[in-house]
Design a protein around this nucleic acid. Structure first.
Lengths: 91, 91
DNA sequence: TTTATTTATCGAAATATTTAAATAAATCAA
DNA sequence: TTGATTTATTTAAATATTTCGATAAATAAA
């Protein structure tokens, strides 16, 4: 992983709301719906959408349409690649 | 590690210049001086100083004064703690 | 078909971050 | 002591991010 990609992933992770979303994805066992986040996050719906978009754009999560809902799931391999990059920084 | 701390570390890592600094710290085997970064980064000296400060404030690196130079070294344990947090996000 | 529900987008305001010029502080070297 | 070198701080401008109201789009339910 190059620095530009690591920068983007770090940026996507650099927000408490987005980290909370990822924790909720885990809790839900990859079955998180947007609506569920309204209860967890103290944010307006467009803001939640904006944070989800950042995680999707950076491929940290994937989205799948299910009727009028959208289901989100974590891309473990992206986290693994990022962890490898971080290991590579260690002296 | 709680979300607030992980957010701060992510933020500190969310910049290509700061990631380059960390790569240089590794290259130098924990003997990086501020002056050396002038050649690597295309930034004015106060900007480099500002980035170093963010890494120091978040305890990602430590600084040690040596005459009129300052030597920087990586705090491996912080990276390790952060990696553990990331592992905990995985489903 | 009409209405309600869920998610996405646009636009604008508020806030945060990045950058560098000017300058200060500390130390070394002559 | 004087001048050069290295790092830090202050201040301000430029840029980026976060947030939300309004609204659109898609689908389900009545």
């Amino acid at each position: 992983m190059d620095i530009k990609r690591a920068e983007k992933i770090s940026k996507a992770l650099a927000d408490a709301n987005r980290l909370t979303i990822l924790k909720e994805v885990k809790k839900s066992k990859d079955c998180l719906y947007c609506v569920d986040l309204n209860e967890t996050l103290d944010l307006a719906q467009p803001s939640i959408c904006h944070h989800l978009k950042q995680l999707i754009d950076n491929e940290i999560i994937s989205s799948e349409k299910e009727g009028r809902n959208v289901k989100y799931s974590l891309n473990n391999y992206v986290i693994d690649d990022y962890i490898k990059f971080l290991e590579g920084l260690k002296v």
